[in-house]
Design a protein around this nucleic acid. Sequence first.
DNA 1: GCAGCCGCAATTGTATGCAATCGTACCGAT
DNA 2: ATCGGTACGATTGCATACAATTGCGGCTGC
Lengths: 244, 244
Amino acid sequence: MIAMGTDFKRADYPFATLNGGEDRALAIREQLRDAIIDRRLAPGIKLVEAEVGTLFDVSRTVVRAALQMLSFEGLVRIERNRGAFVANPTPEEARQVFDSRRLIEPALAIDAAGRIGPTDIAAFRQSLLEESRLMNQRGTGARRAEIRASGDFHLLLAKVAGNAILFRFMEELVARSSLVIALYGRTGASSCGHNEHGDILAALERHDGPEAGRLLLRHINHIEADLDLRVTEALPLRDALQGH
Amino acid sequence: MIAMGTDFKRADYPFATLNGGEDRALAIREQLRDAIIDRRLAPGIKLVEAEVGTLFDVSRTVVRAALQMLSFEGLVRIERNRGAFVANPTPEEARQVFDSRRLIEPALAIDAAGRIGPTDIAAFRQSLLEESRLMNQRGTGARRAEIRASGDFHLLLAKVAGNAILFRFMEELVARSSLVIALYGRTGASSCGHNEHGDILAALERHDGPEAGRLLLRHINHIEADLDLRVTEALPLRDALQGH
DNA sequence: GCAGCCGCAATTGTATGCAATCGTACCGAT
DNA sequence: ATCGGTACGATTGCATACAATTGCGGCTGC
């Protein structure tokens, strides 16, 4: 589930291949989502149906389905008769995302601590490994990939916790977080310091749910603290003109 | 084209009018959702695109969009190349729905207690009034409406709490709960006893968040306790054949 | 009689065509 | 020069046409 799609044809297009006979809208959604949370697609940009369709070599019908899915996740905003735009979350939305995570994730940690098994631990280890590998690389591409990998850790946690509904919620929250971090992240190191994920995993392995929950809460706070959520966001006009 | 906004076909079918020039897929989703959580559409039943389209006098394109939305909410299950079916939540799913609510709603109550204003209180009162009106009626139709009205109370709470993301989550959870209650509800009185909603509102009015949260938690527990979640659900075959 | 296979009807998946809508550039009037 | 309006291009919303898939029923051969 966490495993990302294969990217075997990445070279041809900024977006890559649709895997075989399977659902193509699904595949397009994945590709677009990755592009959005990697910020290869800038927030606010318009996604023209025909254009995306040409890129993926499908009809607008399929593209529309993919865009609709993304709009449910909050990664795309669809305005009637106007089109689909990459989401451009406001600081307020960003705060709400993190509020939601602060509420949900510690509870997931507690559940996960009670259910975690050897297989899960191995998966976590794998995720941490990949993450640190990316962290030691430099370059914006690596940093974006790191943000995604970091998200995988949290998704893994949600998966282990065993509640499918909350898992879906977390999918959405993690995706939105990634976008927010890419948008408002300040320091290069989004979740830097010493690796908090590792500490959380350690607590989980000890089946110490409450501690895992506490660590997770602090972790989320750290992530949010690294953001610059001051309202630089332009626009409201009357505000923009005040004092000039 | 037929002028939109007319409701000349209202009498002909169980589903009613699509509101005006607005998005028709949205309207169809609403209608179907109501029908599902009222159990006018039985769980498991197949929703044939062409059929629904005829009913609402739209093309399959629009119906597909509506069905896709419902599948995101978990009220409809879409199987590729096979079609869309009204969700038939298992007891396990039901438990997960209530677990999620136990996690989220008390937190919402606390937020809401700090933000509730006169306008909100009036809305709550209105909701309670409607609810008790329906509770005093008899007949299955009234009971179904009561379940919906009861859901409205919880949605109102989520709205007052002020987090748009959690509000959306609650929309989904409330809808799924309604379906679960209709499916597994035991006694006629789903949220009966003395009106817990009233008590919760009272706590909110006192801005006593923690108390509101506690009451809400108990309320959710009561609702779940009224369900019959034993696994009557047939199927797993090897289980079904054990001991014969 | 029954297992397996073939073919058809029903239904979904996808592409495409057409009308409605939006945004912009142009243009004339004040 | 600016404002108002209008005509056009681009793009979406929706319907329809066509291809692919499913599953069911009947048929055949044993």
